[in-house]
Design a protein around this nucleic acid. Structure first.
Length: 473
RNA sequence: CGGGGAGUAGCGCAGUCCGGCAGCGCACCUGCUUUGGGAGCAGGAGGUCGCGGGUUCAAAUCCCGCCUCCCCGACCA
């Protein structure tokens, strides 16, 4: 019988997470504290995410570009709230070319300042709007308590930056990204159900007027912020003098947005779907969707496995063929399970004699015998089923661990094992601080039906708003 | 920065109290037998015991100083 490879989730969730990241070969710690080496298998998953996100960003009309890693320190200071928010985590370069720099440069913690300084150059007329730019980049935010993927000093992400002619258009665009790019990818690619909502002023991005967020529940019932989309108002437009002539010939400041998702999504993937046997990858994201594993090489089984793998590949699936019969079958199965490959097709002489192979699902562990001619069809169907099952399981966890409460005391109790939904009127002016002191935060503000608050709705104008609160990463 | 721990093989640890050949598990290499849920046996390689000093015939172990890392509290995608 298989003994356990990993620390169990129940005994020590953080340890289990570290075990998975190491044993599924996703990442290693870098030599500098807080830095991360993303290993080939982990990077392959990230590349799948990138591709899915990128295609949606482009579908929203956005173009990719690239801005420098190093930013003049003075740029950061131009927007008061922005510099205040980021100062504590800046890495500053003071030496270059062997001598002290006249003006220190910072390693970008985010690129609002440098990108907007160019927006100011590029935008002259209403004909230049909207300007929709995205970049894929690394950023550095010095972290006190790093955790691979979840909170690292350097991480990879995309950051979108846009300029619009009106506040309404900017808001609509920020929400389009939140829903049509982020929520869509998270739910339909990562198979992770998310809550959408607005951040409190306390949790708002430094320099934004409004921050929208996608939040998800991890298997230990803690929340993870998966992605954010900000309305920047005219804060940066004023700081960087981004103006244009409108149709009537008057100079106006642009209205802006920025939005990003990062390699933190990798951490979410692990913590939402992983189980005690390892990773469980949603099929649309899995670098290997099906592994054809040769149990024994006798009686033509090896040839049958090669043929089957080729057949699956030619139907457009990402397939790996495991014929390492110098390693025991059990060992190889455990390895593929650790790596989260959604489906396994086990090929061996005993089954072949009866014209079948075994199809094993990673998510449920169920095995079925499938006649050889039907394998491709069965695999295709099963992959969709795995995606649905993973999503449903995560949604059910979130549903069963979310409770409605009417007092801060009950919210605190509920947050010990999940999310609490509490009226904003009960949270009031001081409630957030009270909760924070208990290690709980307001993850997002929603309308009473779980939807997004409308334009201009705040706690005073709309008394039906609710807060989703919980412990968070 | 406040509170608590730990530095010994690639990883995880024992040994330290009471000084006496530097060990165990996993991983790695070679060979043989295995191979349908982490195989077995035999052989092998791998060490600045965090760093510096001191005590001693002898220091991973005792003494002094320093460094680093991890965990828990205030910030963050």
């Amino acid at each position: 019988m298989a003994k356990s490879v990993l620390t169990s989730q129940a005994s020590d969730f953080p340890r289990w997470y570290q075990d998975i990241v190491a044993k599924a070969e996703l990442a290693d710690n870098g030599p500098v504290r807080g830095t991360m080496v993303i290993r080939p298998y982990g990077y392959a998953i990230w590349e799948m995410m990138q591709a899915e996100i990128d295609v949606r960003i482009k579908a929203a009309g956005v173009s990719n570009a690239y801005f420098p890693l190093l930013i003049p320190e003075s740029y950061l200071r131009r927007e008061a709230e922005h510099v205040e928010g980021f100062s504590p985590e800046l890495a500053v370069v003071t030496y270059g070319g062997g001598k002290q720099l006249e003006e220190p440069v910072v390693v970008r913690p985010t690129s609002e300042t440098i990108i907007n300084s160019y927006f100011a150059k590029w935008i002259q007329s209403y004909r230049d709007l909207p300007l929709l730019i995205n970049q894929w980049a690394n950023v550095v935010r010095w972290e006190l308590r790093p955790r691979l993927f979840l909170r690292t000093t350097e991480f990879l992400w995309q950051e979108g930056h846009t300029a619009h002619a009106s506040a309404t258009e900017a808001r609509d665009f920020a929400l389009t990204i939140l829903s049509d790019v982020y929520q869509d990818v998270m739910e339909n690619v990562l198979a992770i159900p998310v809550l959408r909502g607005r951040k409190t002023d306390n949790e708002r991005f430094a320099g934004a007027t409004t921050t929208w967020t996608c939040e998800a529940m991890m298997r230990d019932s803690k929340a993870l912020q998966m992605g954010t989309s900000h309305e920047l108002g005219q804060n940066f437009a004023r700081a960087f003098d981004i103006t244009y002539l409108d149709e009537s010939g008057t100079q106006s400041f642009v209205w802006q947005t920025s939005w990003g998702v990062s390699t933190r999504l990798m951490g979410a993937l692990v913590m939402v779907h992983g189980d005690d046997n390892g990773l469980r990858l949603p099929p649309r994201l899995a670098p290997v969707q099906v592994v054809v594993i040769l149990a024994r090489a006798d009686d033509g089984a090896a040839e049958a496995a090669v043929t089957l793998a080729a057949e699956l590949r030619s139907s457009g699936l990402r397939v790996d063929l495991d014929t390492r019969t110098d390693t025991s079958f059990g060992r190889r199965v455990v390895d593929w399970e650790l790596k989260g490959v959604p489906l396994r097709v086990e090929v061996g002489p005993r089954d072949l004699a009866e014209g079948v192979v075994v199809l094993a699902r990673r998510d449920t562990g169920t095995k079925t015998s499938v006649p050889l001619p039907g394998v491709v069809a069965e695999v295709t169907t099963a992959l969709d089923a795995v995606h649905g099952a993973l999503f449903d399981e995560a949604a059910e966890l979130q549903r069963s661990r979310t409770v409605k409460v009417d007092s801060l005391e009950d919210a605190e109790k509920a947050a010990a094992s999940g999310f609490a939904v509490i009226p904003m009127s009960v949270v009031g002016a001081d409630g957030e601080t009270t909760l924070n002191r208990a290690g709980i935060s307001v993850r997002c503000i929603q309308s009473a039906d779980g939807g997004l608050p409308g334009a201009g709705d705040d706690e005073t104008s709309d008394s039906s708003l609710v807060a989703v609160v919980g412990r968070a990463y």
